Simulated scan of single mutants.
Amino acid sequence: MLIPVQGADLYAYTGGKAFDAAKPTVVFIHGVLNDHSVWILQSRYLANHGWNVLAIDLPGHGKSGGKPPESVEEAADAVLALLKAVGVDQAALVGHSFGSLIALEAAARAPAQVSHLAMVGTAYPMKVSPALLDSAVNAPEKAIAMVNTFSHSTLCPPPSALGPGTWLYGGSRALMRRVLASNPQVNVFYTGFKACDSYAGGEQAMPAVHCPTLFLIGKHDQMTPPKSAKALAQHARLAKIVEVNAGHSLMTEAPDEVLFALRDFLSA
């Protein structure tokens, strides 16, 4: 589904179902150098169980046109513009990593428009090492390898989101290469990491969120350590923390646990 947002078409995967503004809506927001496909299991399930699903490619990423957001605030404005474009007064926001900060900022800016906030693989502050920022520009293959090493908790994961035999490291690397190549004008790897590193509004945004907030974190996450997520949760009004046995790539390493946590949270 292509939706005109801020002067460009923004792509949203709907889980194979037609959009119906009368149904409750959930927006899935991916992290750095990812796209809508990282939510494949969760988005398809909810689309088949009474929800409108909009699993987006951020502007300038994947199938979406427009300029890649240079800050969390810019990206949050795009999400809120998306809700306006589809005529939805209120939606649940689910974000992973960079996407979790975007969802947080959007929920703080427009609290009446967000019914639930789920922050998956999150941390605040979400600092990025200078070495990784440099590699994202000057040695992207090296940076992709680094991110995948730190994003997965084991070399031998159980059956994953795409089924037994899936090579999580290889699939993730292929996706990151594809998203990087999708925008030859702007390095979305560096732009995304820089936006995470520069975001300074988390502690102010969290108390401004009025809806229930789920902190869904990986016990073995090295990219966004659980202690950082728990510190942010202390500033939330209505916080729930769920830990799963995974690293930063929760949706592929622990797909059922992530799905069940989101299902239960959104149904409450």
Rank of each mutant, 00 (worst) to 15 (best):
G60V: 07
S37V: 12
G165H: 05
V32R: 08
A246W: 02
A85K: 08
I102L: 08
A8G: 06
T154G: 09
T224C: 15
L132I: 14
P69N: 10
T14A: 12
R109G: 03
L83K: 02
T166M: 03
G247V: 08
E257N: 09
P24H: 01
L80E: 11
V27P: 00
T166H: 12
M119Y: 09
D9V: 02
D256T: 14
S153V: 04
A81N: 03
H96C: 10
A103I: 07
K227V: 15
G171Q: 02
S97T: 09
K63M: 11
G31T: 06
A139Y: 02
A107G: 06
S182F: 06
T213Y: 02
G7D: 12
G16K: 01
K127F: 03
V79R: 05
L104V: 11
S151M: 14
G163I: 00
V72C: 09
C211M: 08
A254H: 02
F189C: 00
P111D: 05
H96M: 10
P140G: 09
A208I: 00
D256W: 11
I241K: 09
L132P: 02
R44G: 01
P212Q: 09
K194V: 01
K67N: 10
P164F: 04
E105R: 15
A261N: 03
I29C: 03
C211L: 07
L54D: 08
S100K: 07
